[in-house]
Simulated scan of single mutants.
Amino acid sequence: MGRLEGKRAIITGAGSGIGRASAVLFAREGAKIIAVDRMEEAVDETAAMVREAGGEISSVAADAGDEDAVKGIVEHCVSKFGGVDAVYANAGVSGGLVPIEEQTLEYWQEILRINLIGPFLAIKHVTPLMIKQGHGSIVCTASVAGLRANAGGLPYSASKAGVISLVQTTANALYGTNVRVNAICPGLIETGMTKPIFDGARARGKEDKIGQLNPLARYGHPEEIANMALFLASDEASYVNGQAIPVCGGLSSTHPFAASRPGT
């Protein structure tokens, strides 16, 4: 028996990185998967990987920050698999590092729409089903950047701090329902979103320096975040609720940084 045997799970941002690793792992542990990503070709590749490994999956090209799309994804999971036991609201964007004086309203709105409104929409549309069935687990991707400063850009960090508050407040709003809501706070993980950081370091011959600020002195891998998502989605985490759990090699214990003045 797998750790998610018989479970039905929705995973957003499943076209690459953490979402893809989670889809593969969840399916290997027995879950039936609805994999969601804006990039159709990428999410279809994830589905092919899962099927090749013997898993059951349906891929959906959709925007996780669009309410009609999210509602349709939940309905699709119910129609195809008969219900929803777990949701991993993982889709997100970094927005890069833009000086504050150059940040526009639209720039902030798009990052918040995907990173924060997306998880809210997933929670909004799946909780009625989970409450009715008497159980469910919702996992959201936050970030160590949402815990304190100097781990990401301004709107990205603010959006991830919002995700942390969202899971805390929602866990309490769902008092007595047996629906759990938690967040994962990854540190520096090699994904498509962080590719520019890794490419730049490698181009300068500094790959060995990537991740050096955390006590493990290395960067993380998508599979290491997927392992935490698996735990939180499973019944093994039946008494874990309203938490934001760092998976960061210890970075969040200090958040060391190199200070710089504006314009330098």
Rank of each mutant, 00 (worst) to 15 (best):
246 P>W: 01
156 Y>Q: 07
249 G>H: 04
240 V>W: 05
174 L>T: 09
119 P>H: 03
120 F>V: 03
230 L>A: 10
84 V>L: 04
69 A>V: 06
255 H>F: 15
133 Q>F: 06
100 I>L: 15
154 L>D: 14
180 R>L: 11
233 A>V: 09
172 N>Y: 13
39 M>A: 13
196 P>C: 05
142 A>V: 01
236 E>S: 12
146 G>C: 02
248 C>G: 12
146 G>L: 12
137 S>L: 10
138 I>F: 03
188 L>E: 00
7 K>R: 13
18 I>K: 02
264 T>K: 13
3 R>T: 03
73 I>L: 11
172 N>H: 14
72 G>Y: 06
186 P>F: 03
224 E>Q: 11
176 G>W: 04
207 E>S: 10
206 K>A: 13
109 Q>C: 08
129 L>G: 06
38 R>I: 15
117 I>V: 15
236 E>A: 07
135 H>G: 11
250 G>P: 02
90 N>L: 09
4 L>H: 01
230 L>F: 00
261 R>Q: 13
31 A>G: 03
195 K>F: 05
214 N>Q: 06
27 A>H: 03
65 G>Q: 09
86 A>E: 10
54 G>A: 03
43 V>D: 05
262 P>D: 10
116 L>N: 05
195 K>P: 00
9 A>W: 06
220 G>C: 00
70 V>L: 03
43 V>Y: 00
156 Y>C: 04
131 I>K: 15
48 A>Y: 07
131 I>P: 10
31 A>D: 09
196 P>K: 05
214 N>H: 06
187 G>W: 02
106 E>N: 06
170 T>S: 15
264 T>N: 13
27 A>E: 09
160 K>F: 00
127 T>F: 08
63 D>F: 05
4 L>Q: 06
107 Y>P: 08
57 I>M: 09
25 L>K: 08
53 A>Y: 09
257 F>G: 04
